[in-house]
Simulated assay, not measured.
Amino acid sequence: MLVRALRSEVDLTVEYTRKRGHAAALARSAAESGVDVVVTLGGDGTVNEAVNGLMTAEPGLAARGTAPAFRLPALAVVPGGSTNVFARALGLPRDWVEGTGVILDGLRSGRHRVIGLGRADDRYFTFTAGLGLDAAVVRRVEQARLRGRTSTPSLYFRSIFSQIVSGEDRKSPPLSIERPGEEPETGLGTVIIQNTAPWTYVGDRAINPNPDASFDRGLDLLAVRNLYIASTTRTVTQMVSRNADPHGKHVLRMHDQAEFTVIASRPQAFQLDGDYLGERQKVHFLSVPEALRVIC
């Protein structure tokens, strides 16, 4: 149905991803071949790969020197995953049929939005990144799914509290944040970075630790200074409340940041756009304005 609907409006070529990283290769090839729009059907992991493929494509000679958003194909996202944070943050319907209708209308009218992205070292992200507790929870959830568990809100909450009570990094928080021209922030147990709001969804509820984060500004972050059970549980409860406002002496928040580096004294779990990417000890974060055109 999706293919028929798009093919009725545009000259369409369909490709299927076959392994991890394939979506990035397909998007890069499409951009370098001169297509106008790349459409993805999948979850946030597929979108992240496609975005990285687009952002690493080599532009034609005529396009060099312009902002990425205006030298690259536009991106259209049809939601097809379990959470679809990026699509929902853009205001797209959760249902892929309704989402297809919005995209078709945007293609007909030429409607698009220019957004900024985040970059972590050499990899781009659309809505979130994290080191420490945040990413360790993503790792736990991925491991549970590999064992056959279904991704549900209760699975995420159990993973959060299991990680909190595990005691990892509680006595000696390993993370610090360095910014150009500023004193380092040290003694941090976890760092959450947002390129937009919300940070994620639990079912229908948006989780918004940094509600002022936006595709149109720099990066926002929230860090927790230690991982004591009582204080961390209180911060998590504040984050998931309907009027989220994480605060307290253990909470550090920064808004509209252009650039910073997170450094760990020992390897820490690392995630981008909800995908666990292993452990890191140093990650440089950069806000990339006017990075991408999206049909929405």
Rank of each mutant, 00 (worst) to 15 (best):
G130R: 02
M55G: 02
Y124E: 08
G248M: 07
R94F: 05
P198W: 06
F157T: 10
I103H: 01
G278T: 10
L272Y: 05
G274D: 00
L188A: 09
S82A: 14
M239S: 09
R170P: 00
E98Q: 15
E15C: 07
R179K: 13
L75D: 00
E15I: 07
T46C: 09
F285D: 05
P153S: 10
N226P: 02
K19G: 00
L75M: 07
R119Y: 11
V141S: 02
E290Q: 13
G99R: 01
L188E: 04
A258N: 11
G118R: 03
R266I: 03
R94A: 14
R149W: 07
D105K: 15
P198M: 12
D122R: 15
R225N: 05
D95L: 08
T13M: 06
V236F: 15
R147H: 11
G181L: 07
D122A: 11
S231H: 12
N195T: 06
I207R: 10
P153I: 10
V236W: 03
E259K: 13
L61S: 07
V251I: 13
F270Y: 15
G43I: 05
Y201D: 06
G21T: 13
G167P: 04
T128M: 12
T152G: 08
R170M: 06
T17G: 08
F70L: 13
V102D: 05
S29W: 06
L72A: 12
Y276S: 09
G167F: 11
F285L: 14
L107Y: 10
T66Q: 11
L131V: 13
N195Y: 07
D122C: 02
A23D: 04
V294I: 13
A291N: 08
T186M: 10
K282A: 11
G45V: 02
D212A: 15
D122H: 14
E182D: 13
L26F: 02
G81Y: 10
M254V: 09
H112K: 07
Y16C: 09
G116M: 06
